[in-house]
Design a protein around this nucleic acid. Structure first.
Lengths: 199, 199
DNA sequence: CGATAACTTGAACGATCACTCAAATATTAT
DNA sequence: ATAATATTTGAGTGATCGTTCAAGTTATCG
């Protein structure tokens, strides 16, 4: 038998990411992973070395996907501020059965592992920073295009933007009434649009 | 020997709350609890029934303390909006070594237990709601005192206020640069003060 | 000073944890 | 077909999980 195909590995990683995201690092057992990966313990260890490593690979996957999704949205956006505001509204618009209707996996990881698993926490912090840098870059694009005032503090706006996302996603996680979530997202989105200056 | 004094029980509960808050429910073991409570397993079970029950008692303690702290601050505040804004700034002003410089225990609990321990999650949700109701009441006081526009949506403002707190505390948890945290809290506090209308 | 009650102790419980490895099975190369 | 190689299998590892309880200790009271 040859090496497992990319498809198999990719499918397994996707499944691992989903359980980990749902249950968190500590609450996910090898039994859980055996079930969703449809692999026996030996195969899991042959393919992914350890539970911790599998978690780190899941984080990578999550991070790549999140960043790509944001960049794609920004590439298509008619203006930077519009793209940013839409990104916020997008979370509230998720269909009710969407498995992503919950807290960000990076956020969850940091809450779960900061005081217990420093290695995981460190990598996760780095990922969150890189995402925030992408937000900063988006605000800088808005500035370059004259949409945003020249003296705006893009790093500060990016931090607040990231905070807005956390807040919306936490409400998704809680299962708050969709109307209330839409209202919250709308509040945040308008804050972004209120930054727009006439050109 | 008589029943344990209130003092002893209180000290033990405080210690339990702190470990649970630091490590989270799943990552805290009986060993950890034995160490910080300075009690042997038998005593812990005689006094608190189970790990889950001890966690619930810790949550109660945390909730009571949080709500009381907020109410005290509001009672002393010269105006409702001032009190609310100060509450936000207060988090950024915490001394660097303060053990409370981290994510809210209720938030952490929900992230940690929503998909694994429904009983804990349900009680925690109720507590978060009651705190949000206190925020709503504060905004309503602002309205009654003419500080806030009569058509303001107090429940909506309360949800946004709670989101602001979560965001600040998550940054505390990350160990973000104090200056950046102050800036973030200042942004949120000014949003609250911007709601003030002339009377 | 005993007797009784209250509380603590820590060894031990079965269950589950993350993880290993020799044996079995499947694939490819010859 | 056969040999060589790659991968899967699942029972089993020691450690640790939350929990129990009979025995021991300490306080209170007559």
């Amino acid at each position: 038998m040859s090496r497992p195909t990319q498809y198999q590995r990719d499918t397994a990683l996707e499944a691992a990411m989903q359980v980990f995201w749902q249950k968190g690092y500590h609450a996910t057992s090898l039994k859980d992973l055996e079930a969703v990966l449809e692999m026996k313990p030996g195969s899991i260890y042959a393919a992914f070395s350890s539970k911790e490593n599998l978690y780190l690979l899941s984080l990578d996957r999550y991070f790549d996907r999140s960043l790509t999704r944001f960049q794609d949205l920004m590439d298509k956006a008619p203006s930077a501020l519009t793209g940013l505001a839409d990104h916020l509204r997008g979370f509230a618009k998720m269909p009710p059965q969407d498995h992503a209707r919950q807290v960000c996996m990076l956020t969850k990881t940091l809450v779960d592992t900061t005081n217990t698993d420093p290695e995981i926490a460190a990598r996760t912090k780095a990922y969150l920073e890189r995402i925030r840098e992408a937000f900063t870059a988006a605000f800088e694009r808005a500035k370059a295009e004259g949409e945003l005032a020249p003296d705006a503090d893009c790093a500060r706006l990016a931090r607040r933007f990231q905070a807005s996302i956390s807040a919306i996603r936490f409400e998704l996680h809680l299962g708050t009434d969709p109307e209330d979530i839409t209202a919250l997202a709308e509040d945040f989105a308008r804050e972004i649009e209120a930054l727009r200056q006439d050109t």
